[in-house]
């Protein structure tokens, strides 16, 4: 039995690494620019927003929900941060206040989602789709429909563009790691720690695996679900701030369509949309793959970034179909086993 578990574990990792390798080698051959250091740094920077959002949405997905509002929440957070910071002329303090306001707003939205989904028993995708519409309106209300620029060189700029590690390679090319990558890594580590080392993480998995059973061991489903949705929205806010910082302005269209990309990342990362199953490493793997595909689309001339949407749909469908097929096959095996057990019990009687 132990070997079985071990092999299935290595199986997942072997599968992931294999896919990444295949994609990279294939791209490296067809597009020499792909495997340059500069481009790899570029990819990592590119996925930092997806990665943060994927880690956050993982919490919502683990309890069996979904958060389709993250794209709009990201836009909202950028807008709030800029508008608040503008009051104080983008001084460091006011920037921090703006950032804090944005994140608090995101968390409140998450709690509101949790209330509607758990207390009123409305399906999560409807709630988050509807609120994303409301949020879109709210952004326009706040910003008046135009983009909000921030002062270059202020703290807002730092969120994404500050250079943390910078040195010149022997080939003479610069190697830079920016703040956004650092935030992503720190956030991912925190999420991993929370999910795997705290009682809160245990409760999240328990609710997603079997809500009734979770209630019977004294878990407050409402409170913990709200927290999960709040983390999802909060992560979307952080992603939105990075996005705002790197594009150098806040606008209502920023982050549009990110919910689809993040969802794809999670599905590709092997996260069970029914809840209870999935890891941070899976989410990051998914974000990595999505980032690479997005990168490919921008690198290769004949492909347009817009094609991404096409691939997005195709990949989600294919991965889901494969996983459903695998699951039914294993369930069939389990069914056979259950039958054997039932027969053994019949013999006992």
């Amino acid at each position: 039995m132990k070997e079985k578990i071990l092999s299935s574990l290595t199986g997942v990792w072997a599968f992931r690494v294999l896919i990444l390798l295949i994609v990279c080698v294939f791209m490296g051959i067809s597009e020499p620019r792909f495997l340059t250091i500069g481009n790899i740094v570029n990819i990592i920077s590119y996925i930092s927003v997806y990665g943060i959002m994927a880690c956050g949405m993982l919490f919502a997905v683990l309890i069996g929900g979904l958060d389709l509002s993250i794209g709009r929440v990201a836009a909202l957070s950028g807008t709030i941060a800029c508008i608040v910071a503008r009051v104080g002329g983008f001084s460091a303090t006011w920037c921090l206040i703006g950032i804090a306001c944005a994140i608090v707003a995101g968390i409140l939205i998450g709690y509101f989602h949790g209330f509607l989904i758990v207390k009123l028993a409305i399906p999560s995708f409807v709630v988050t789709l509807a609120t994303s519409y409301v949020i879109y309106g709210a952004i326009t209300l706040l910003s008046g429909g135009s983009r909000v620029d921030f002062v270059r060189g202020s703290l807002m700029d730092t969120i994404s563009n500050a250079r943390i590690v910078e040195f010149t390679l022997s080939s003479g090319k610069p190697f830079v790691i920016q703040m956004n990558v650092v935030i992503f890594i720190v956030f991912a580590v925190i999420c991993w720690y929370v999910l795997s080392k705290t009682t809160f993480g245990r409760r999240i998995y328990a609710i997603g695996g079997n809500t009734t059973a979770a209630q019977f061991v004294g878990i407050n489903v409402f409170r913990n679900s709200c927290a999960a949705y709040a983390i999802s929205s909060g992560a979307a806010c952080i992603g939105g701030l990075i996005l705002m910082s790197s594009t150098s302005y806040a606008a209502q269209t920023l982050g549009a369509g990110y919910e689809g990309m993040v969802l794809m990342a999670l599905i590709v990362g092997g996260i069970n949309l029914a809840g209870g199953k999935g890891t941070i490493s899976g989410a990051i793997f998914g974000a990595l793959l999505v980032g690479i595909i997005a990168n490919i689309c921008t690198l290769v001339d004949f492909l347009n970034l817009e094609y991404l949407k096409f691939f997005q749909g195709l990949i989600i469908l294919i991965v889901c179909i494969i996983s459903v097929i695998l699951e039914t096959r294993s369930r069939r095996g389990k069914g056979r086993k259950a039958k054997q057990i039932a027969e053994m019990q019949a013999q006992d009687e």
Binding site: Y205, G209, N210, T212, A213, G276
Partner: peptide, 9 residues
């Protein structure tokens, strides 16, 4: 199965 354990864990 419905109320007792978490089948995925």
């Amino acid at each position: 199965r419905r109320e007792g354990f978490n089948p995925l864990q």
